[in-house]
């Protein structure tokens, strides 16, 4: 799981083209959006696309559910582990 967590941190940095940040700077349990890393609505779109490409997962159209998966890297890793097809 730790490997997947690190992988997702790197994916977040790469797919969102984040600057001046290393995987070590992203707290596993901290919120990705609003507070914490402070990602925005366009980031959510980009990250969704990157996750789909990399792990073959599809995010639910239901916004509330997607928001839950995007809560933190930990939540995202759990979601990817359970749903990945690639």
């Amino acid at each position: 799981m730790q490997a997947l967590v690190d992988e997702i941190k790197q994916l977040v940095i790469d797919s969102l083209n984040l600057e001046d940040i290393t995987p070590a700077d992203i707290e596993t349990d901290a919120p990705l959006f609003n507070e914490g890393l402070g990602l925005d609505s366009i980031d959510a779109l980009e990250l969704g696309i990157a996750l789909q490409k990399r792990y073959g997962i599809h995010l639910a159209a239901e916004a509330a559910e997607t928001r839950e998966h995007f809560r933190s890297v930990a939540a995202l890793a759990a979601f990817v582990a359970a749903n990945r097809t690639l």
């Binding site: 984040l18 600057e19 940040i21 700077d25 609003n34 402070g38």
Partner: peptide
């Protein structure tokens, strides 16, 4: 360090600036 400082400034800015307006490059 630069990354941490920029992220802290960004978080402070988030109180008055909406997410899409927060600087992503510093």
């Amino acid at each position: 360090g630069k990354g941490a400082l920029d992220r802290r400034l960004r978080a402070q800015l988030a109180r008055s600036v909406e997410p899409l307006g927060l600087p992503r490059r510093w």
